[in-house]
């Protein structure tokens, strides 16, 4: 790793990884390719990866346009700094890849779109018991001090996806993406099996939904009661959704190998919408609605009311791709 100026870099690919509004899990997930990291270093030089090595933005700015062959970008766009880096990396990269759900569909950070900026600031800086802020100070993009202007990034009205800002070539879904799949995608992109430039094509996953990889069986029964995973010991081998445990599998892209379900938990939807679906939440709502064991409106309401935090459940990873847009 490190600077490539003096290596035989002309033949080796140059790769980058950046994080924006995300938890850092994607950086770890990239490490999850395990021994393949060594293979990666054989074929590529890392020219930007702030989480792993000391690169400055200025390094990137100094690169010629298109210098980076493949740049992985994880995290959503919430601030002007993230937008700036997105635009910069787009300019400097031949292939820009959204890595993980935050960059693709907003991820968990985009649940903040359910609140206005005012609401978020209120909770963050004023009305939380642990906050001590007697002067009611809020961060300001520009602060005047004796020495001049201090600048911090601007906080945007809503969480955006990478593709809302710049053109994206590929998307590797998941929260985080699974290591084996990621390595396959890296091989495909770096090995020239697919063109470097494309239009947000999803890789390291499949078009079908998680049900395709799920080992559980349906009994063709309707949902009689909703229960949360901790409230019940599910019957083995039987579809969790039919047992009343909200499982996002039917509305979620496959590729993970149904990991959570095999571990006894329902799918949380972290690979985003499947197939050609744009809005994962409405896809799941229409599915669940038609599976209710209810013939009257009252009964349907009674059942629906048992679902705790429906928006947070159905859009846990994809609020920025929702047709509901944002709170205003």
């Amino acid at each position: 790793m490190g600077d490539n100026e003096n290596s035989q870099a002309t033949e080796k690919l140059k790769v980058g990884m950046y994080w924006a509004a995300s938890c850092g899990g994607c950086d770890i997930a990239l490490l999850e390719i395990g021994p393949h990291l060594l293979d990666l270093i054989q074929i590529a030089d890392v020219v930007f990866w702030p989480c792993a090595a000391d690169f400055k933005y200025q390094h990137v700015a100094d690169y010629p346009d298109g210098y980076i062959d493949v740049c992985f970008f994880n995290g959503a766009i919430r601030t002007s700094e993230q937008e700036e880096l997105a635009r910069l990396l787009r300019k400097k990269s031949k292939s820009l890849i959204s890595f993980g759900e935050c960059a693709i569909d907003g991820g968990i950070p985009s649940l903040a779109n359910l609140k206005t900026v005012e609401g978020i600031f209120d909770a963050s800086y004023h009305n939380t018991p642990s906050i001590d802020n007697p002067d009611g100070v809020e961060p300001q993009p520009i602060t005047l001090v004796e020495q001049g202007e201090l600048e911090i990034p601007v906080f945007y009205q809503q969480v955006l996806r990478l593709k809302d800002i710049v053109q994206v070539d590929y998307e590797i879904p998941g929260c985080p993406p699974q290591g084996d799949r990621v390595w396959e995608a890296i091989v495909a992109v770096t090995g020239g099996a697919v063109p470097l430039t494309n239009s947000a094509v999803k890789v390291a996953c499949f078009d079908k939904s998680v049900c395709d990889e799920c080992p559980l069986e349906k009994k063709l029964e309707k949902i009689k009661e909703f229960k949360r995973p901790h409230e019940v010991r599910p019957e083995p081998d039987w579809c969790l959704l039919e047992q009343g445990i909200v499982c996002m599998g039917p509305a979620t892209r496959s590729g993970c190998g149904a990991l959570c379900i095999k571990g006894g938990l329902p799918c949380r939807g972290c690979y985003g919408p499947s197939g050609t679906v744009e809005d994962q939440g409405t896809a799941m709502v229409s599915t669940i609605a038609s599976l209710l064991d209810a013939t009257t409106e009252d009964r349907a309401k009674e059942l629906i009311d048992q679902i705790v935090d429906p928006v947070g459940t159905f859009y846990r990873f994809s609020m920025a791709s929702s047709h509901m847009k944002t709170a205003r």
Binding site: D207, S209, L291
Partner: peptide
Amino acid sequence: NEDLCTGCKTCLIVCPYDAIQRDDEKE
């Protein structure tokens, strides 16, 4: 669409006319 269908049977449950069957071979 065979490329997208996972054979999850959701449609089988809701079809009011029993017009959908599952092809167990192709799933």
